[in-house]
């Protein structure tokens, strides 16, 4: 899996690097949105795919990141490069808060609490006028000029520049995710997902594992949110409704939760495919909905999960022994 993942990543990287030289503005914009969704879905996969904690609040964290950028720009006058770490930290703290109910609740109960939190954040953005600008949202300045200690480094003006920022950010977040899931922490997340009781019995601090998974997953969304706010030069509550969260969940699930590449491919595919409907653009969302039902019905483990399963059973057949062919089974 690891090797196949690296090859796929390399192919994707080449494609995304070549894109600005080959594509027009509209297509590039779609790809930039896809990159934002890659960050969101890869982040969600940490909590849900690896640690097994279902969350429908990724869209809310996306919004919290964006509003952190908007509020800081308005009240403190900071720019993108200050807002980015601030947005990540603030969103991470919100992730910690969402992690607390996860310590007590499981499965669909947790899913529903996250839905409630998601909706509360949305309603909060709408209602808390003085802070969030209510339904009209906030204007956010473009990224513009970037300086370090007074030295002008580069300027982000065109869509193409923005695309590069998004690509670098997505690459960094994907790399961080890679490190996380291939570390001891990532292994403990999987342990919690597989069997929480056993994880405790071998001495793992499951509280720590769950909270870090939630914080990491929210922090990813926060980063994407800050970039989105500066790229769109504004935030409104309607950009962060529950349907965004569901969309991110769908991307992760269709790609394959708990696989590394699945959410990346799912995010790219589900952003780009609806754009290819052309004549059928009117039916874009209709087709999306139907596709989602079909995907979950046909391959609930997602595209990559399905491939992994097939490979495993093939390996097993190749190694020439079916499970349970051992004398120890016999009596019992």
């Amino acid at each position: 899996m690891t090797r196949a993942a690296l090859i796929t990543l390399a192919i994707l990287a080449v494609g995304f690097v070549a894109a600005p030289f080959l594509l027009g503005g509209y297509e590039l914009n779609v790809l930039m949105v896809a990159l934002l969704y890659v960050i969101l879905a890869v982040g969600l996969n940490l909590a849900t795919g690896y640690c097994g904690q279902f969350s429908f609040a990724q869209g809310a964290f996306y919004g919290i990141g964006g509003y952190t950028a908007g509020i800081l720009s308005r009240d403190v006058g900071t720019g993108f490069w200050m807002n980015l770490p601030a947005g990540i930290v603030v969103t991470g703290l919100f992730g910690l808060a969402l992690g607390l109910p996860a310590l007590r609740l499981k499965g669909h109960f947790l899913a529903i609490v996250t839905i409630a939190v998601q909706t509360l954040v949305y309603l909060g953005l709408v209602q808390w006028n003085s802070l969030t600008g209510g339904q009209n949202g906030l204007a956010v300045p473009p990224i513009g000029e970037t300086t370090l200690f007074g030295v002008r480094l580069f300027e982000v003006t065109s869509l193409r520049d923005l695309y590069w920022v998004a690509l670098v950010m997505a690459a960094v977040f994907v790399f961080i995710a890679w490190r996380l899931v291939h570390s001891r922490l990532g292994r403990e997340w999987v342990a919690v997902r597989e069997d929480e009781t056993l994880a405790g019995a071998v001495g793992l601090n499951t509280t720590f594992a769950k909270l870090t998974a939630f914080v990491a997953s929210a922090a990813f969304a926060g980063g994407a949110g800050v970039l989105n706010a500066h790229a769109m030069q504004g935030v409104t509550p309607d950009d962060f409704q529950i349907w965004i969260s569901c969309m991110v969940v769908a991307m992760m699930v269709v790609g394959g939760r708990g696989t590394f590449m699945g959410p990346i491919l799912g995010a790219i595919a589900l952003t780009i495919l609806p754009e290819l409907t052309g004549e059928l653009a009117r039916y874009k969302m209709l087709i999306f909905g139907v596709l989602l039902v079909v995907c979950v019905t046909v391959a609930p483990e997602g595209a990559l999960g399905r491939i992994r399963k097939a490979r495993e059973s093939r390996d097993q057949a190749a190694s020439g022994r079916a499970p349970a062919k051992d004398p120890s089974e016999a009596s019992a």
Partner: peptide, 9 residues
């Protein structure tokens, strides 16, 4: 997830 898809459709 499936019912979300159905809702959107």
């Amino acid at each position: 997830i499936a019912s979300f898809g159905l809702a959107v459709a």
